[in-house]
Amino acid sequence: MESLIQNILNALQWGSFYSLIALGYCLVYGVLSLINFAHGDIFMAGAYFAFFGATFLLGKTGVIPPGMPGWAVLALTIPISMILTSALGVTLERVAYRPLRRKGAHKLYVVITALMCGLVLENGNLALFGASRKNFPTLVPQIVYSLGGVSVTNLKVAVILVAVLSFLFLHYVVGKTKIGMAMQAISYDRFAVPLMGIPTDTVIVFTFVLGSSFAALAGVLFAMSYPVLDPFMGALIGWKAFIAAVVGGIGSIRGAFAGGFLLGFVEIMVVAFFPSTFRDLIAFSILLLILSLKPTGLFGVARRTKI
C-alpha cells in the first residue's frame, strides 16, 4: 500500500516533466499544425541555461563573488533560463520556420527543418561544451517529509505543483484571453485571420515564447531532480513527451497535460512490476494500443475533410 502511494507520487513527478514538455508541443501544433521536433532539445537548452545561470550566480565563474543564498539563486535562475530559452525558441521560429511559412512551403519541409534544428542544438552543444556531463549544483537543500512510510521531498511537491499551475495558467490563457482566442483562430484558419486584423506573426511568436518558457521550467526542475545534464537528455524525453501529447489528443491543452501524466504513470508502474529494461517496450506498446483504439487521442477531435 505504502509502496503504491510512493509510486503514485513518483509517477506524478515524472509525469509532470512530460506534461510540461508536451504542453509546448501541443501549443505549437495547435496553432501551426507543426510538429516542432526541436522542442525536446529546447527543454535540454533550458536545463543548460539554468546550469550556466546558477553556476554564474553562485560565483563559480569568478565574475561575481560567491555567497548569494541558494534560494535567491534559484529565484533568479528560473526567469533567466525561461527568458533565454524563449529567445532560442523564437530564434528558431524567426530564422528557420517563418521564412518557410512565408513561402507557403509544404508542411513536411517545416517538420524536417524542425528535426534538423533539434540535431543542431544537440550536437552543437556537444561540440561546444564537450561530452563531459554537467553536475547541476544543489540550490535548495532537500527536505524529506515522512508520512507513514511514504517519503515526500519538497522538490517533488514543487514539481507537481508547478506542472498543475502551468496547466491551469495555459488553460486560462488559451481559453479566456484575447491572445489565446487569436491562437485558436489561427489554428482554425491561418489565411482568414490576418484579414481580421490579427497580427499572425506576433501571435505565433507568443506561442513559441509560451512553449519554450514552459520547456525551460521543466528543464530547471528536471536538472534539480536529476542533477546530471548531457546534450542528449532532451532527445528521448522529448520524443516521449511528443507521443504523450499525441495520445492525449494533440492540439488540446487538456490532452497534452493528461497524456504526460498517463505516460509518467505507465512508466513508473512498469518499472515497479517488471525489470526496468521493459519500460520503453511496455510504455510504447500501451500508447500504440490507445492510439489504435482511439485514433484522435484521448481529448482530440477528428477534423473532417470537405469535398
Binding site: 507521443i243 520503453d280 517496450l281 510504447f284 506498446s285 500504440l288 484522435t296 477528428a302 477534423r303
Partner: peptide
C-alpha cells in the same frame, strides 16, 4: 491522420529496439 505515422513509427522503432 497524416502526422500520426510519424509517432507510430517512432514508437515502433523504440519497441523493436527495446
Amino acid at each position: 491522420r497524416g502526422d500520426y505515422l510519424a509517432i507510430i513509427t517512432i514508437a515502433a522503432s523504440y519497441i523493436i529496439k527495446s
